[in-house]
Protein backbone atom coordinates (compact mmCIF):
# COMPACT_ATOMS: atom_id res chain seq x y z
CA UNK A 1 0.00 0.00 0.00
CA UNK A 2 2.68 2.48 -0.98
CA UNK A 3 0.31 4.48 -3.15
CA UNK A 4 -1.76 5.75 -0.22
CA UNK A 5 -2.21 9.48 -0.12
CA UNK A 6 0.35 11.01 2.15
CA UNK A 7 -1.61 12.13 5.23
CA UNK A 8 -1.60 15.81 6.00
CA UNK A 9 0.18 15.43 9.29
CA UNK A 10 -1.03 18.62 10.87
CA UNK A 11 -4.61 18.09 9.87
CA UNK A 12 -4.63 14.56 11.24
CA UNK A 13 -3.58 15.98 14.59
CA UNK A 14 -7.18 17.15 14.96
CA UNK A 15 -8.45 13.57 14.74
CA UNK A 16 -5.77 12.31 17.09
CA UNK A 17 -6.56 15.10 19.53
CA UNK A 18 -10.27 14.27 19.41
CA UNK A 19 -9.48 10.62 20.09
CA UNK A 20 -7.14 11.52 22.95
CA UNK A 21 -4.19 9.88 21.24
CA UNK A 22 -1.76 12.78 21.58
CA UNK A 23 0.78 12.95 24.35
CA UNK A 24 0.11 15.86 26.75
CA UNK A 25 2.73 18.12 25.22
CA UNK A 26 1.44 17.36 21.72
CA UNK A 27 -2.10 18.05 22.89
CA UNK A 28 -1.02 21.36 24.43
CA UNK A 29 0.76 22.32 21.22
CA UNK A 30 -2.33 21.42 19.19
CA UNK A 31 -4.46 23.60 21.46
CA UNK A 32 -2.17 26.50 20.70
CA UNK A 33 -2.53 25.72 17.04
CA UNK A 34 -6.32 25.76 17.37
CA UNK A 35 -6.20 29.01 19.29
CA UNK A 36 -4.34 30.62 16.41
CA UNK A 37 -5.99 28.98 13.45
CA UNK A 38 -9.73 28.52 12.99
CA UNK A 39 -9.18 25.82 10.36
CA UNK A 40 -7.75 23.49 12.98
CA UNK A 41 -10.50 24.36 15.41
CA UNK A 42 -13.13 23.56 12.80
CA UNK A 43 -11.36 20.36 11.87
CA UNK A 44 -11.39 19.29 15.51
CA UNK A 45 -15.04 20.23 15.89
CA UNK A 46 -15.96 18.19 12.83
CA UNK A 47 -14.16 15.16 14.25
CA UNK A 48 -15.79 15.59 17.63
CA UNK A 49 -19.22 15.75 15.98
CA UNK A 50 -18.63 12.63 13.94
CA UNK A 51 -16.97 10.64 16.70
CA UNK A 52 -19.79 11.46 19.11
CA UNK A 53 -22.01 9.48 16.74
CA UNK A 54 -20.07 6.37 17.74
CA UNK A 55 -22.15 6.50 20.91
CA UNK A 56 -25.39 6.16 18.91
CA UNK A 57 -25.58 2.45 19.59
CA UNK A 58 -25.07 2.85 23.34
CA UNK A 59 -28.37 2.20 25.08
CA UNK A 60 -29.52 4.86 27.56
CA UNK A 61 -29.54 3.77 31.20
CA UNK A 62 -31.42 5.80 33.79
CA UNK A 63 -29.03 6.71 36.60
CA UNK A 64 -30.10 5.96 40.19
CA UNK A 65 -32.59 8.59 41.43
CA UNK A 66 -30.42 9.66 44.37
CA UNK A 67 -27.61 10.71 42.05
CA UNK A 68 -29.30 13.90 40.87
CA UNK A 69 -29.25 15.43 44.33
CA UNK A 70 -25.64 14.50 44.82
CA UNK A 71 -24.74 16.05 41.48
CA UNK A 72 -26.75 19.16 42.30
CA UNK A 73 -24.89 19.52 45.56
CA UNK A 74 -21.57 19.19 43.76
CA UNK A 75 -22.57 21.61 41.01
CA UNK A 76 -24.27 24.26 43.10
CA UNK A 77 -21.96 23.98 46.11
CA UNK A 78 -24.92 23.48 48.42
CA UNK A 79 -24.83 21.25 51.47
CA UNK A 80 -27.31 18.67 50.29
CA UNK A 81 -25.20 16.06 52.03
CA UNK A 82 -26.37 17.38 55.39
CA UNK A 83 -30.01 16.75 54.56
CA UNK A 84 -30.22 13.84 52.19
CA UNK A 85 -33.58 13.82 50.46
CA UNK A 86 -33.06 11.59 47.49
CA UNK A 87 -36.40 12.31 45.87
CA UNK A 88 -36.29 16.05 46.34
CA UNK A 89 -36.91 17.87 43.09
CA UNK A 90 -36.71 21.57 43.93
CA UNK A 91 -33.26 22.97 44.74
CA UNK A 92 -32.95 24.70 48.13
CA UNK A 93 -34.25 28.23 47.65
CA UNK A 94 -31.82 29.89 50.03
CA UNK A 95 -28.63 28.47 48.60
CA UNK A 96 -25.85 30.92 47.78
CA UNK A 97 -25.26 31.48 44.11
CA UNK A 98 -21.66 32.64 44.11
CA UNK A 99 -20.50 29.80 41.95
CA UNK A 100 -21.68 31.40 38.73
CA UNK A 101 -19.41 34.37 39.39
CA UNK A 102 -16.25 32.29 39.51
CA UNK A 103 -14.00 31.07 36.74
CA UNK A 104 -13.93 33.99 34.37
CA UNK A 105 -11.53 32.03 32.22
CA UNK A 106 -11.51 32.52 28.50
CA UNK A 107 -8.68 30.20 27.63
CA UNK A 108 -9.31 27.79 24.84
CA UNK A 109 -9.79 24.79 27.08
CA UNK A 110 -12.16 26.65 29.27
CA UNK A 111 -13.98 28.22 26.37
CA UNK A 112 -14.63 24.81 25.01
CA UNK A 113 -15.58 23.50 28.42
CA UNK A 114 -13.36 20.60 27.64
CA UNK A 115 -10.34 19.13 29.18
CA UNK A 116 -8.57 16.85 26.77
CA UNK A 117 -8.10 13.24 27.69
CA UNK A 118 -4.44 13.38 28.56
CA UNK A 119 -2.08 11.75 31.04
CA UNK A 120 -3.02 10.98 34.62
CA UNK A 121 -0.87 13.38 36.62
CA UNK A 122 -1.88 16.45 34.75
CA UNK A 123 -5.49 15.43 34.96
CA UNK A 124 -5.28 14.81 38.64
CA UNK A 125 -4.01 18.36 38.98
CA UNK A 126 -6.81 19.72 36.84
CA UNK A 127 -9.38 17.76 38.79
CA UNK A 128 -7.89 19.10 42.01
CA UNK A 129 -8.27 22.61 40.65
CA UNK A 130 -11.91 21.98 39.83
CA UNK A 131 -12.49 20.86 43.37
CA UNK A 132 -10.67 23.79 44.90
CA UNK A 133 -12.45 26.19 42.64
CA UNK A 134 -15.82 24.72 43.51
CA UNK A 135 -15.37 24.90 47.25
CA UNK A 136 -13.83 28.32 47.86
CA UNK A 137 -16.35 30.83 49.15
CA UNK A 138 -16.56 34.53 48.30
CA UNK A 139 -14.61 35.56 51.38
CA UNK A 140 -11.25 36.74 50.03
CA UNK A 141 -10.77 40.44 49.56
CA UNK A 142 -8.76 40.32 46.34
CA UNK A 143 -9.16 37.72 43.66
CA UNK A 144 -6.30 35.28 43.77
CA UNK A 145 -5.21 33.16 40.89
CA UNK A 146 -3.53 29.81 41.19
CA UNK A 147 -2.31 27.13 38.87
CA UNK A 148 -0.70 23.82 39.62
CA UNK A 149 1.61 22.59 36.91
CA UNK A 150 2.33 18.90 36.94
CA UNK A 151 4.39 17.02 34.38
CA UNK A 152 3.00 13.82 32.98
CA UNK A 153 5.11 11.55 35.14
CA UNK A 154 4.58 13.87 38.14
CA UNK A 155 8.32 14.36 38.52
CA UNK A 156 7.79 18.11 38.29
CA UNK A 157 5.16 19.92 40.33
CA UNK A 158 5.12 23.71 40.42
CA UNK A 159 2.42 25.77 42.07
CA UNK A 160 1.95 29.38 41.19
CA UNK A 161 -0.14 32.03 42.91
CA UNK A 162 -0.91 35.59 41.99
CA UNK A 163 -2.97 38.26 43.68
CA UNK A 164 -4.82 40.56 41.32
CA UNK A 165 -3.12 43.93 40.69
CA UNK A 166 0.12 42.67 42.10
CA UNK A 167 3.47 42.86 40.44
CA UNK A 168 4.77 39.50 41.54
CA UNK A 169 3.79 36.00 40.78
CA UNK A 170 4.87 33.55 43.44
CA UNK A 171 6.01 30.08 42.65
CA UNK A 172 6.54 27.03 44.78
CA UNK A 173 8.44 24.20 43.20
CA UNK A 174 7.03 21.24 45.09
CA UNK A 175 9.25 18.78 43.31
CA UNK A 176 11.46 18.48 40.24
CA UNK A 177 14.14 20.54 38.58
CA UNK A 178 15.45 21.34 35.12
CA UNK A 179 17.44 18.67 33.31
CA UNK A 180 21.22 19.12 33.68
CA UNK A 181 22.45 22.07 31.62
CA UNK A 182 18.94 23.38 30.89
CA UNK A 183 16.41 25.74 32.41
CA UNK A 184 12.69 25.59 33.00
CA UNK A 185 10.77 28.54 31.61
CA UNK A 186 7.29 29.64 32.63
CA UNK A 187 4.86 30.83 29.96
CA UNK A 188 1.54 32.56 29.93
CA UNK A 189 -0.77 31.43 27.16
CA UNK A 190 -3.94 33.33 26.48
CA UNK A 191 -6.27 32.84 23.54
CA UNK A 192 -4.83 33.67 20.17
CA UNK A 193 -1.70 35.35 21.44
CA UNK A 194 1.74 33.86 21.14
CA UNK A 195 3.00 32.45 24.47
CA UNK A 196 4.42 35.15 26.71
CA UNK A 197 7.49 34.38 28.80
CA UNK A 198 7.10 34.95 32.51
CA UNK A 199 10.76 34.15 32.92
CA UNK A 200 13.10 31.32 33.74
CA UNK A 201 12.19 29.52 36.95
CA UNK A 202 14.97 30.20 39.44
CA UNK A 203 16.63 27.15 40.96
CA UNK A 204 15.26 28.05 44.41
CA UNK A 205 12.29 26.11 45.72
CA UNK A 206 10.18 29.21 46.16
CA UNK A 207 10.44 32.71 44.81
CA UNK A 208 8.80 35.37 42.73
CA UNK A 209 8.63 36.31 39.09
CA UNK A 210 7.65 39.79 38.01
CA UNK A 211 4.63 40.04 35.75
CA UNK A 212 4.97 43.03 33.40
CA UNK A 213 1.98 45.33 33.75
CA UNK A 214 0.89 44.85 30.16
CA UNK A 215 0.47 41.15 30.68
CA UNK A 216 -1.34 41.07 34.00
CA UNK A 217 -4.76 41.20 32.39
CA UNK A 218 -3.86 38.12 30.38
CA UNK A 219 -3.64 36.06 33.55
CA UNK A 220 -7.44 36.15 33.44
CA UNK A 221 -8.51 33.24 31.37
CA UNK A 222 -4.99 32.17 30.60
CA UNK A 223 -3.03 28.98 30.98
CA UNK A 224 0.43 28.56 32.40
CA UNK A 225 2.94 26.24 30.84
CA UNK A 226 6.49 25.17 31.57
CA UNK A 227 8.95 24.28 28.84
CA UNK A 228 12.49 22.97 28.95
CA UNK A 229 14.85 25.53 27.42
CA UNK A 230 18.57 26.13 26.98
CA UNK A 231 20.32 27.72 29.97
CA UNK A 232 19.15 31.29 30.38
CA UNK A 233 15.83 30.66 28.66
CA UNK A 234 14.49 30.44 25.15
CA UNK A 235 16.75 32.25 22.69
CA UNK A 236 13.81 33.08 20.43
CA UNK A 237 11.25 34.46 22.88
CA UNK A 238 8.94 31.54 22.10
CA UNK A 239 9.01 28.06 23.63
CA UNK A 240 11.63 26.01 21.79
CA UNK A 241 11.82 22.90 23.98
CA UNK A 242 9.34 20.34 25.19
CA UNK A 243 6.31 21.70 27.03
CA UNK A 244 6.35 19.50 30.12
CA UNK A 245 3.34 20.89 31.99
CA UNK A 246 0.35 23.08 31.30
CA UNK A 247 -2.48 24.16 33.58
CA UNK A 248 -5.31 26.66 33.54
CA UNK A 249 -5.02 29.71 35.77
CA UNK A 250 -7.92 29.48 38.17
CA UNK A 251 -9.37 32.57 39.85
CA UNK A 252 -10.90 32.41 43.25
CA UNK A 253 -13.07 35.34 44.14
Amino acid sequence: MTDDIDPDEELMLAAEYALGLLAPEEAAAFEQLMARDADFREEYEAWAENLADLTDDIAPVTPPPALLNQIRAAAFGTAAVAAPQPEEVEPPATAPVFETATAQGRGLLQRLGLLPAVGGGLLAALVALWVIDATIGPSLALPTATATLVSEDESLVVEIAYTDDGEWLEFNRRTGRAPEGQDLQLWLINGDRAPISLGVLPAAQTGQLRVPEDYRQLLHGGNCAISVEPLGGSPTGAPTGEVVAIAPIVWET
Binding site: E42, E45, G113
Partner: peptide, 25 residues
Protein backbone atom coordinates in the same frame (compact mmCIF):
# COMPACT_ATOMS: atom_id res chain seq x y z
CA UNK B 1 -21.54 11.33 35.38
CA UNK B 2 -21.39 13.66 38.37
CA UNK B 3 -18.07 15.15 37.25
CA UNK B 4 -19.39 15.62 33.74
CA UNK B 5 -22.58 17.41 34.83
CA UNK B 6 -20.62 19.64 37.20
CA UNK B 7 -18.36 20.63 34.30
CA UNK B 8 -21.36 21.23 32.07
CA UNK B 9 -22.99 23.44 34.71
CA UNK B 10 -19.82 25.41 35.24
CA UNK B 11 -19.06 25.82 31.56
CA UNK B 12 -22.57 26.45 30.29
CA UNK B 13 -21.81 30.17 29.88
CA UNK B 14 -19.03 29.29 27.46
CA UNK B 15 -20.98 26.80 25.44
CA UNK B 16 -22.11 29.32 22.84
CA UNK B 17 -18.48 30.15 22.07
CA UNK B 18 -17.63 26.64 20.94
CA UNK B 19 -18.62 25.15 17.64
CA UNK B 20 -20.34 22.01 18.93
CA UNK B 21 -23.93 20.94 18.65
CA UNK B 22 -25.30 20.56 22.18
CA UNK B 23 -25.36 16.75 22.29
CA UNK B 24 -21.85 16.58 20.87
CA UNK B 25 -20.64 18.92 23.57
Amino acid sequence: LQDAFVKVWRNADRYSANGFSPMTW
